[in-house]
């Protein structure tokens, strides 16, 4: 299963470039007078429109991988390409969602959601139309004029999702976006994420430490090793869609996948615990 390179062949002799491709990417940074090797020769290809979950022990460099994909960091060696184009500077058309909701407290729900459109100076008519649509799709319409502090955690996460998706980014980077939510909200918002994503078909890189969540959501799971992170294995998840995140974990297929991937992940989690203590 090593590095499943599942490129879509459009016609013989022509392959659609990967939405995102890491080629032998290494990354190290300085902490004090120590050099920390976060990633070592990571190679990974993600086909357009795929939902890919990255799992691995805490602190292994999963978030770093997202930052590299966005162009927020430059690899120490190797290269990152988006749709076949080597990434230079900041990637554009990227949506980014992370653990805290990261909303702007002084903007209403509506203003928060339309922020990307405002920044991209889209025409007013288009902004109004899109915002109305997204408020409806996320069930936030009654709260359009509310401020983030007046909303529950689940609501705020919906706003963050709408904000990340409204400008229709080709690439969606998600860094443990659901892990601050309680169990029920996690399943609920996860399902909503899937519904929104199915309509949009952005490529998703989803970092999580929760294997159940990863299996429920993703088309493909990439297991990363303890630091310095390397791609340990790639598992395609061929559970049928649409998926019901609440019941899916009872299916034998889910259990089989869980056991297999956990077997791979377990050793890494343990070895990272040993190296941290």
């Amino acid at each position: 299963m090593q590095t499943a390179q599942r490129l879509v062949a459009a016609s013989p002799g022509y392959e659609l470039p990967a939405a995102i491709s890491f080629d032998n990417v290494s990354f190290s940074y300085q902490r004090g007078d120590q050099t920390i090797q976060a990633l070592e020769r990571v190679s990974l290809q993600v086909s357009p429109g795929k939902f890919v979950a990255l799992v691995g022990p805490s602190g292994c460099g999963k978030s770093t991988l997202l930052h590299l994909a966005a162009g927020l960091h430059k690899p120490s060696s190797g290269s990152v390409s988006l749709l076949g184009q080597p990434l230079q500077g900041l990637a554009n058309e990227v949506g980014y969602v992370f653990q805290s909701d990261g909303l702007l407290a002084w903007k209403t729900v509506k203003e928060n959601i339309c922020l990307p459109l405002r920044i991209q100076r889209r025409p007013e008519v288009e902004v109004r139309e899109l915002v109305a649509d997204w408020l409806r799709r996320t069930g936030l319409a009654p709260f359009a004029q509310a401020y983030p502090a007046q909303l529950s955690g689940g609501m705020r996460k919906r706003v963050a999702l709408a904000q990340a998706l409204i400008h229709h980014p080709k690439l969606l980077l998600m860094d443990e976006p659901l892990s601050a939510l309680d169990v029920h909200n996690r399943a609920l918002i996860g399902s909503e994420l899937l519904t929104l994503w199915t309509k949009q078909k952005s490529t998703v890189l989803f970092v999580t430490h929760d294997l159940e969540e990863a299996i429920g959501l993703a088309d493909e799971i990439v297991v990363l090793s303890a630091r310095p992170a390397q791609v340990k294995a790639v598992y395609p998840i061929d559970l049928p869609r649409p998926r019901n995140l609440i019941d899916i974990r009872l299916s034998p297929e889910f259990q089989r996948l869980y056991a297999a991937i956990w077997g791979e992940l377990r050793g890494e989690v343990l070895s990272s615990c040993v190296s941290q203590s």
């Binding site: 966005a70 927020l72 990227v94 980014y96 969602v97 990261g102």
Partner: peptide, 14 residues
């Protein structure tokens, strides 16, 4: 300002 928020808004093209 939370660094991730800056990242996010920069990635919107700010």
């Amino acid at each position: 300002v939370e660094e991730n928020v800056l990242h996010k808004v920069r990635l919107m093209g700010a």
